[in-house]
Every structure is written in structure tokens, then in C-alpha cells.
Design a protein around this nucleic acid. Structure first.
Length: 807
RNA sequence: GCAGUCGUGGCGAAAUUGGCAGACGCGUCGGAUUUAGGUUCCGAUGGGAGACCGUAUGGGUUCGAGUCCCUUCGACUGCACCA
């Protein structure tokens, strides 16, 4: 059959009959299947998109055939850096290129033949959407979850522009090669850290890949310890360090501040100032990634100031070193050279003292640095305590003296959402000389992104150059004021799109609470593992924050998550233009059709693994389709006998039902490759029956019908055509997926392997319900020769599998 | 550097979760159909002549290990001196 014609035909009929329209009145049966939406970059839909969307759609179709009201929307994550860079290069406006790309990708997406209900489509870059992104920002602001603070950005002094991390290559600007420095700007943050504990605790309940949960767990990075307060000698100032090893506090021989720590400027002595300033300048030139490279040589300088260790009153030097980060803990660390790997290296390098205060508990000799737990020594009243006891006891004592506190620390940082970019949602805030920072009133939303803006980089946010945009009346006092010139991180747009889909036309609210409480959470979310920590964590945060603000009533957005693997080029490398190994789906589809392409992707790879592309796999799927088509054609119009040979009937019916059972189970776990293998076996069994039995009964017809139904989610156009060929009524997707007849799954006889001393020696066939004694007897008979005298120590029987005789 | 995942025929991969390793497919070989090639249908296909040997490596637990534990090697992904 001409698959391309068939695909066109059914895509039209599906659209004309509205087959995939979501029925809102059946919401109690809803199944929300969501694939991560596309980013419409210059490129077209690639093999990776297909690998995400094709199998996911097969899952959705399976759910539909099980009677669920499937909601499977599609949309575009349309704001972002690539469109803007493309514009800087070509002069084509981001809005124009983006809308054009979207149109192309929509066409391509329609060719997949997926069940998307396009009525619910969403673009994040249109005012109808970003109005509500801005509204969400305002709600977070009103609830104290959005705030401003200074934070460093990557700054190219030559281009006069802020760079994204990916635009910094080995510390240099990717465009001009100038060394990138860090520069502080006042920017907006979302207080995701308020939810650190809940984000961590909620992971347990989720049906997500374990490794993804583990990655989020590490990202949140909870650790138990305490703050310890050090006074600066001869000054008023005090500062705290966070430590998980307070049992080593007596071994502190120095303390280190991060170069960005504001205290540095305050305490540095005049003699040391020049060196410290130079050190700070150099540190600002090193990107965070380079600065944190583990094999990098440790550096640091003295501030000239001294700190007083609160446990023993000892004076220790205060240094500045870039291995201490301002963003983690308190931006200050106590140096315990004897019991910390990094401190040890640092102390050696700078000639600082090293003093042991912990030794191994069993008294066995150990070398420094000794980083394990042990027993405290040289620690005054704490001598003899174990590290476990000591790290609590030391903090508790300090706490009583007001010089410390037990503390749980999180690695997670607040989410920086300001971008000094054009192509994003404007931040809906106004800066008034008299009233300060004022939110845009909700009735004034959206704050529209102006079209005519000079977005080429020249030192300020592109929007800052648009007087028309910037000038606004202060909503509080009415006097002239300025808008915030920054736009929102695109992750903000994608943190709530799944909430907008079900209610995408709502112009009164971001979404109707009652409705989305019925439609959400998402039942199955499918997308790449690269989003494990950012997108998936941000979306969870948004859901929880919206719940607490009273806009919805569930805790988690995505109950169940699957990551598809990556399809590599046929050379085993990641597909990339520079390698020239990119596989274009369009060519394959033009040749074989969308269904063959989709089935190839599902059969040839383990879904979560992916793997290298292989050209000749497509052809074999085409042949499989032909094989199915032939048996369907043969079946239609055939005259059936009432009875056929019982044995052949029983065998075929057995295969039929085991196929149904395992295919259903496999789709549920996204094991598409094995599901298709079972279907192929079923086809083989139908052929075997056909060859062996002259006068076929209606079982043959039933099996062929089941075959088409089983195949339908995988090859939707093809199956719809076959269903019609069988004289059945439209549509195959309104049929129920076959359900196995449990009675047919029981076989009269089973084959068991017989082992002697765990080595396979024979096979026996016994009745399904054979008694233990009978099995033993049959097994012993079968291996009588090997056993010789017949003596044995014991027999192990694994029901339905094997018998192992230990001689 | 740390963490996670993984390593199975010529190739893509399976393996009921500790129970007959290699399902299914590709490729290859053979047979049938065909004037022939292709298509189609049927069969064989881990290695070895064999007893046997085989799931990266070396050990361990077990009646039994691809699966669990430890060692080493390699690949991929993530994180980045996390105090």
C-alpha cells in the first residue's frame, strides 16, 4: 500500500471528524500525557523530536484505547537566546524568525500523525501567554517570593554586554575572545530556597527515574551541621562559618573568606590591601567553572586581620581564597588542615600550621589529612568524644554562649530570573524615584514587548534603549518613572505551561482553578534527562508556590516521568552539523512514511537508552508492514469453518493472549521494543497457523483483528487503513485495546529444564499442575544415566522453570 | 576529582528481577517459488571437531549469578573545591 497516501488520507479524516478533540465532559476519565514542548530554533524537527514525540503518542493512543480521555497538547517554548543571537547575526527580527519556525514545525509535527488537540496549543512568546507569566511574577512578588539583590553576571568589557554561561568559552567571550569578568548587577530572584525542604521530601512520592530523583536530591544538597561565630581580633565585626565537622573546631589554624565576601574590604589591613585588591580582581576574571576546577592550584592571600576561635580563644589568621564561594554557606570557611583534603593542600601551599585534633577510633595509625570520623584529641573538655558526638556537642556549647547554632544547610540557591536580553517576557515592575520599586497593576498587564528595539549588544539591556517602552507613569504617585529593562529567564515561561494548556484561551485568568484541579497533575511527562535539575525543579517549585497562594490544589505537577534516550548519528557520536552525521527525518519519511519511521524508532532502541542510528532498520520495518498487510488481505472475505484442528487452535489462541498481555504491560513501562517483538511473534504464529491449517475457523479472523488493534498505537495510519480493509467501522481508535483471556494463558503442559549439579542435562515435559513427587520422578528418570547409581543429596524445584538435582 | 548509569553474538537488542543467556529484528548461509534477479515462504545461525567454553576483568556469596558483594579496566551522563 502507498503509506504516504494512506497517511494523508487519514490525517485529513481525523481532522475532519475531530477524532482527537478533547471531551471536557469526560474529564473524570482524563489522562494528561505531556511531552516537553519544542524550542523553535532555526533548525527543523529532528530525529530527537521524533524520538520524544512518536513513542509518547503511541503511549497516549494506547491509553485512549483503554478508555481514557487523553489530553495531549503541544506548544512552543518560543522566547530565548538563540532567536536573539540569530537576529544579531542576520538582522531578522526574533519575532519574525520565531513565528516562521513555528509554522514550519507545526507542519512537521502534523506529519507525525500524533493525537494533539491543536485547539489547546500554546506559544510562550505571545502577549496572551506572557501576560500571565508576568501575572505569576507579580503574585510571587506579593507573597515575598520575588526579591532583588546584587548578583554577578558574565561581562564582556569589549562587547559591552552580558554573556550567558554558554557564551563564555574558557573564560573568554565566544565572539571576540576578550577575557570575561564578573560584574555585579541588581537582579530579580525567586525564593526557591523557601521550598528546599518540601522539594526534597516530595521526591519520595514521585514515580520518576531514580537517577533523576537522586540528581535533584544532590542539587538541593541538604547537609546537617552548624554555624560557628568567629570574632575579628581588635574589632567589632563578627562572622560565622558553616561546618559539618564541628568536632574539628579545636584544629582550626586559619579561616578563609570568599573574595566577594563584603567583610574582606572592612577588615583588610593597609599593608595587605594592595595584595588583596589584586587577588580580588584576578578572581573576578576566572569563571566560576574554572575557579572550581578541582585540579587547579590553590591560591590565597592574607588580609592581615586575625580571628578568635570561640572554642579556645586562639588567634588565627584570616585569608582570602577563591576556593571559598560566596554563594554557598556563609561565604567563609574555617581551615582545619589536619582533617580536610582541600584545607590540607591549601595550608601546605601557604605554610600554615597543621594540628591534629581527631585520631582513628581503634587507635590504628593514620596519616594526615585524616578526614574520617574518629576520636577527639587536643580538644579540651571534649577529648575522648567520638566525632559523631563531638560535632553536636561543640555546637551546643557554643549555642549556649550565643556563638553558634545547629543548622541545616542547602546547596540550592535562589533562582536568578533577570536577563539583560530582548527576546523574553518583560519584568512587570516599575522604578519610581519617589515610591521605589512598584509592581505594574494587574489590570495594566501585559507589559508588551515592543517590536522596534535595537537589540544589538552595546552595554545595556536592549529594552533600556526604547524610550517608548521605558517611560511610564508611576502607578502609585503618577509621576514619571521607568520600567524594569530586563526580561525573564525563559525557564519562567516553561515552569507553568502545563497549567495553561487545559485552559489556554482563558483571558480572565492564567487558568481556572476548578478546571485545572480536575485536569492536573500531568499523568505522564516525557522529555530529556538534561532537564533533571533546572526545568523539572522550577516547575515543581511553581506548583507548590501557586498552591500556597491558593491558585491550585495539588502538590506536584508531574506524577510520572520518563526520559527518552538520545539518538546518535550512525558513527555513534552526538548528531551535530559540524560532524555531518545528522539524520533528517524528512528524508526517511518521504521514502518510508511516518508510521514506518516511528515503529523503527520504537523497535530498534531501548527507549530510555537511545543509541546510534542505523539506516537499514527502516527497510525491515517496511517489510514487516507488508507481512501484516498480506495476512489482513488474505483474511478479508475468507470463508471460515466451524471447527479447526484443536491443537493448532489452542496454540494460536495461547500466543494471541500472551501477546495481548505482554504488549499491554510493555507499553505501560515504555518498553516499546519488546512490545513490538511480541507483536512480530504473533504475526509469525498467525503465519504458522495459516500454513498448517487448511480450513480455518473464525479464530483466524479474530486474531487478525486483534493484531490490527494491537498494532494501532504504534502505526496509527497503517492500522486505520487495515481496519477499514477488514470492513470494520471507523475509527480503530474508538475500539477497546484487546484484553487477555486469563483462561487461555494457562497451558496444559510445561517444559522444565533438568539440571544435575546446576548443569543443564535434560528437558522434561510435565502437566501444568503436576505434583512435586511426579516432577521429581520424571526428572530423575531423565537424568538417570548421568546420576549413575541414582544417589543424590537434594532436589530443588523452581515451578515452571527447572529442576536442579544436587548429587 | 566526586557521583550516577552502563559494559551481553558480526550488528540493534532481550532475559519474567537470583532460575534453560542471546527472545525479536538486521546481516549471513541453505532450501522452495521464479526463465533470471528482486519479492515472498520455510529453515539454520555465540564459539569449539569434541568433552566443554562463553554476559569487560579478577575474586566472592549461592544448589544456581548477565543479575547481588568487592577489585581492576573502559564508556557515557551529571555535578563542580559544598566547608
Amino acid at each position: 500500500m502507498d503509506l504516504k497516501q494512506v497517511e494523508k488520507k487519514w490525517q485529513k479524516i481525523w481532522a475532519d471528524t475531530g477524532l482527537y478533540k478533547f471531551h471536557r465532559d469526560r474529564v473524570d476519565k482524563k489522562c494528561y500525557v505531556l511531552e516537553m514542548f519544542s524550542y523553535p530554533s532555526g533548525a527543523k524537527l529532528h530525529a530527537g523530536h521524533w524520538y520524544n514525540y512518536g513513542p509518547a503518542d503511541s503511549y497516549a493512543r494506547f491509553k485512549r484505547m483503554q478508555g481514557y480521555e487523553v489530553f495531549q497538547p503541544m506548544g512552543f517554548d518560543a522566547f530565548g537566546l538563540p532567536a536573539e543571537n540569530y537576529a544579531i547575526k542576520t538582522g531578522i527580527h526574533p519575532q519574525d524568525s520565531t513565528m516562521k519556525n513555528i509554522a514550519t514545525m507545526e507542519e512537521q509535527l502534523k506529519k507525525i500523525g500524533a493525537m494533539y488537540d491543536w485547539d489547546y496549543e500554546v506559544y510562550t512568546c505571545v502577549p496572551e501567554y506572557y501576560k500571565w507569566t508576568q501575572w505569576l511574577f507579580l503574585q510571587l512578588y506579593k507573597h515575598g517570593l520575588a526579591y532583588r539583590k546584587e548578583a554577578p553576571v558574565n561581562w564582556c568589557p569589549s562587547c559591552n554586554t552580558v554573556l550567558a554561561n554558554e557564551q563564555v568559552v574558557q573564560g573568554e567571550c565566544e565572539r571576540c575572545g576578550t577575557t570575561v569578568v564578573r560584574k555585579n548587577l541588581t537582579q530579580w530572584f525567586f525564593k526557591i530556597t523557601d521550598y528546599a525542604e518540601e522539594l526534597l521530601a516530595g521526591l519520595d512520592k514521585l514515580d520518576w527515574p531514580e537517577k533523576t530523583k537522586l540528581m535533584q536530591k544532590h542539587w538541593i544538597g541538604k547537609s546537617y551541621g552548624g554555624d560557628i561565630e568567629f570574632a575579628v581580633k581588635g574589632r567589632e565585626e563578627k562572622f560565622r562559618v558553616f561546618t559539618t565537622r564541628a568536632d574539628t573546631t579545636f584544629g582550626v589554624t586559619y579561616v578563609v573568606l570568599a573574595p566577594e565576601n563584603p567583610l574582606v574590604d572592612v577588615i583588610t589591613t593597609p599593608e595587605c590591601r594592595a595584595a588583596v585588591e589584586e587577588y580580588k580582581l584576578n578572581a573576578s576574571k576566572v569563571t566560576e567553572i574554572d575557579r572550581l576546577a578541582s585540579n587547579r592550584e590553590k591560591t590565597g592571600v592574607m588580609t592581615g586581620a586575625y580571628a578568635i576561635n570561640p572554642v579556645n580563644g586562639r588567634e588565627v589568621p584570616i585569608l582570602v581564597a577563591d576556593y571559598v564561594l560566596a554563594s554557598y554557606g556563609t561565604g567563609a570557611v574555617m581551615g582545619v588542615a589536619a582533617h580536610d583534603e582541600r584545607d590540607f593542600v591549601f595550608a601546605k601551599k601557604l605554610g600554615l600550621p597543621i594540628e591534629r585534633v581527631v585520631k582513628s577510633a581503634d587507635g590504628s595509625p593514620d596519616e594526615l589529612p585524616y578526614t574520617d570520623y574518629g576520636v577527639m584529641v587536643n580538644s579540651g573538655e571534649f577529648d575522648g568524644m567520638t566525632s559523631e558526638e563531638g560535632k553536636i556537642a561543640v555546637i551546643k556549647k557554643l549555642e549556649a554562649e550565643g556563638k553558634g547554632a545547629l543548622k541545616t544547610n542547602y546547596r540550592l540557591r535562589d533562582w536568578l530570573v533577570s536577563r539583560q536580553r530582548y527576546w523574553g517576557a518583560p519584568i512587570p515592575m516599575i522604578h519610581c524615584e519617589h515610591c521605589g520599586v512598584v509592581p505594574v497593576p494587574e489590570e495594566d498587564l501585559p507589559v508588551r514587548l515592543p517590536y522596534n528595539v535595537e537589540f544589538k549588544p552595546d552595554g545595556v539591556s536592549p529594552l533600556a534603549k526604547s524610550e517608548e517602552f521605558m517611560n511610564v507613569k508611576c502607578p502609585v504617585c503618577g509621576r514619571p518613572a521607568r520600567r524594569d529593562p530586563d526580561t525573564l529567564d525563559t525557564f519562567v515561561c516553561s515552569s507553568w505551561y502545563y497549567l495553561r494548556y487545559p485552559d489556554n484561551r482563558n483571558d480572565k485568568a492564567a487558568f481556572d482553578r476548578e478546571w485545572i484541579d480536575k485536569m492536573l497533575p500531568v499523568d505522564k511527562y516525557i522529555g530529556g534527562a538534561e532537564h533533571a535539575c533546572m526545568h523539572l525543579l522550577y516547575a515543581r517549585f511553581f506548583t507548590k508556590a501557586l498552591r500556597d497562594m491558593g491558585y491550585l490544589d495539588f502538590d506536584e505537577p508531574f506524577l510520572s516521568l520518563v526520559h527518552q534516550g538520545t539518538i546518535l548519528g550512525s558513527d555513534g557520536n552526538k548528531m551535530s552539523k559540524s560532524r555531518g552525521n545528522v539524520v533528517s527525518p524528512d528524508d526517511s519519511i518521504a521514502q518510508y512514511g511516518a508510521d514506518v519511521f516511528r515503529v523503527y524508532l520504537m523497535f530498534g532502541f531501548s527507549y530510555v537508552e537511545g543509541g546510534p542510528w542505523n539506516d537499514n532498520g527502516l527497510e525491515s520495518i517496511g517489510r514487516f508492514f507488508d507481512r501484516v498487510e498480506r495476512v489482513v488481505k488474505k483474511c478479508y472475505g475468507m470463508n471460515f469453518e466451524k471447527r479447526a484442528p484443536e491443537k493448532a487452535e489452542k496454540e494460536l489462541n495461547y500466543v494471541r493472549n500472551t501477546t495481548i498481555k505482554s504488549v499491554s504491560a510493555d507499553i505501560e513501562t515504555f518498553s516499546f521494543n519488546t512490545a513490538l517483538a511480541r507483536i512480530m511473534e504473533f504475526v509469525n504464529a498467525i503465519y504458522a497457523y495459516d500454513a498448517a491449517v487448511q480450513n480455518k475457523s473464525t479464530l483466524f479472523n479474530d486474531c487478525v483483528k486483534d493484531l490490527v488493534l494491537l498494532l494501532a498505537p504504534f502505526a496509527p495510519h497503517f492500522a486505520e487503513e487495515l481496519w477499514e480493509m477488514l470492513g470494520q467501522t471507523y475509527s480503530v481508535f474508538d475500539q477497546r485495546y484487546p484484553v487477555a483471556d486469563e483462561k487461555a494463558l494457562v497451558r496444559d503442559e510445561v517444559e522444565l529444564a533438568v539440571q544435575v549439579n546446576s548443569k543443564l542435562r535434560a528437558r522434561i515435559t510435565v502437566a501444568q499442575d503436576a505434583a512435586k513427587e511426579d516432577i521429581e520422578k520424571a526428572a530423575l528418570e531423565a537424568v538417570a544415566a548421568q546420576l549413575g547409581g541414582g544417589a543424590y543429596k537434594k532436589i530443588i524445584i523452581v515451578p515452571g522453570r527447572l529442576v536442579n538435582i544436587i548429587a
